[in-house]
């Protein structure tokens, strides 16, 4: 972040236009890592399939974390899996974003009380940008989560140093 922060200390027309261009490019082609955990993964698949068509928002599944911009944590995260997810997240190149899909990934869901083996929220391991509630969330809810993420990216600045 902050490639030109020495030259430009305040916003001006060049910075804002450059930011707009970068953000527009970034939010329009969020490549998603093909990574399903549990029940929510099926709804994630349904979202990318014919009826809901994730592709129209520029979300294309990539099998490797090295090529992905966004990881959707879709399902119950067990303690055994949490370490692997952390490693996968670390393998992704910057800038990277995380959507926590469903109750299980957000807080443990129905396994909150008796699930000694379930991580109570993926945000204890990796930083989360957008939480999508539901068990499982409808595809529309996931699309809404993605639009929220795009909104967040639209307001980022790459030129100015982030405070």
């Amino acid at each position: 972040m902050g490639i030109l922060d020495k030259e430009f200390t305040e916003s001006n027309i060049i910075i804002t236009k450059f930011d707009d261009l970068m953000n527009w490019a970034r939010l329009s082609s969020l490549w998603q890592m093909t990574f399903g955990l549990a029940c929510c993964a099926i709804e994630m698949m349904a979202t990318s399939a014919s009826h809901y068509d994730f592709d129209r928002f520029g979300v294309i599944p990539r099998p490797s974390p090295r090529q992905a911009d966004i990881i959707i944590i879709s399902g119950t995260v067990t303690l055994k899996m949490a370490l692997r997810i952390k490693r996968l997240y670390e393998q992704m190149p910057e800038p990277k974003y995380v959507i926590s899909m469903g109750s299980c990934a957000t807080c443990g869901g129905p396994y909150w009380n008796h699930g000694y083996h379930v991580l109570k929220g993926i945000d204890r391991v990796i930083p989360v940008d957008v939480y999508v509630p539901g068990c499982p969330p409808r595809p529309e809810a996931l699309l809404e989560g993605l639009l929220k993420l795009q909104e967040k990216i639209r307001n980022e600045s790459h030129v100015k140093k982030q405070v």
Binding site: T78, Y111, N113, H117, V118
Partner: peptide, 14 residues
Amino acid sequence: IGYLHRCFEKHCEA
């Protein structure tokens, strides 16, 4: 296996 162990049987007891 065991990456998605959700302890169904233990939950049933409770």
